[in-house]
């Protein structure tokens, strides 16, 4: 069974973003970019499936600018087999991402797709579910653990009240949560090997997908600032203050 893993190049999770003064967006000049952390978890899970003999091939896809091929290389160094870059310098909304991925699924026929539960830049938490719906496949979102059997997957999900286990028929889409696994670091030899792995380039037009944005972003602004408060001398002073504020 082939496993498809879409990976997104995002601003590194350690970077504190700055909103541009003209409110046109956030400053992405010279900031460190990395693979979306949830996608690292997705790649790791797919590679483990291959190591356990449950997957035959792990195909990595990214939609984005030329530099997104570096993100694909990172995934290949972790153990992915080959990559597909759907190249565009435009912003791509989640629905368009899902349509592009659907076109790739139609062509590649994977039995399982693993996406991140959310991209940490746009925090949309949509793509995996949208892709599943467009394909008419079941989904297991916010995955905490996975057991793959013949023709079905048992997925335990992180939900608001705790954990829920569902069983879905394959093919299916799964989205990763934080505790599914701990992604490996790519070793130097594997990084070298990844340089020779193939990355095919396509455009959204090749796949017949119109990526014209539907939404209009009017502005990107700073959230309300919190003033840092005071240090209190001890517990009694703290409680006096909280009482005066009427919060206890």
């Amino acid at each position: 069974m082939k496993v498809l893993v879409p990976v997104k190049r995002v601003i590194d999770y350690n970077v504190k973003v700055r909103v541009k003064a003209d409110q046109s967006g956030v400053d992405l000049a010279n900031v460190k970019m990395s693979m979306n952390p949830f996608d690292e978890i997705a790649v790791e899970e797919a590679v483990r499936l291959k190591e356990k003999g449950k997957a035959t091939e792990v195909v990595i896809v990214s939609i984005g600018p030329q530099q997104a091929s570096e993100t694909i290389r990172t995934a290949l160094a972790m153990g992915g087999d080959r990559g597909i870059l759907v190249k565009t310098d435009q912003m791509v909304e989640p629905l368009a991402v899902a349509k592009i991925l659907k076109a790739i699924v139609d062509a590649e026929q994977p039995g399982f797709v693993i996406t991140g539960k959310q991209a940490i830049d746009d925090d949309a938490n949509q793509v995996g579910q949208m892709l599943a719906a467009l394909l008419g496949w079941p989904q297991g979102t916010f995955a905490h653990s996975l057991e793959l059997a013949d023709g079905s997957a048992r997925i335990t999900r992180e939900i608001d009240g705790g954990l829920q286990t569902i069983e879905v028929k394959l093919p299916a889409v799964m989205t990763t949560d934080l505790r599914l696994n701990e992604p490996r670091y790519a070793s130097l030899p594997n990084i070298m090997k990844a340089k020779k792995k193939p990355i095919e380039e396509k455009s959204p037009a090749d796949l017949g997908v119109d990526i014209t944005p539907r939404f209009k972003v009017l502005k990107i602004s700073e959230p309300p600032k919190r003033n840092s408060g005071v240090k209190v001398s001890g517990v009694p002073e703290l409680l006096d203050k909280l009482k005066a504020d009427g919060v206890i």
Binding site: P94, L95, V127, Q129, M130, L131, A133, E158, I159, D160
Partner: peptide, 19 residues
């Protein structure tokens, strides 16, 4: 919530609108 986030993108995709 985890329920809303799980369901609604599917509906949006099928209606061909963004969420």
């Amino acid at each position: 919530t985890t329920t809303g986030k799980n369901i609604l993108p599917r509906v949006a995709a099928r209606l061909d609108v963004g969420q």
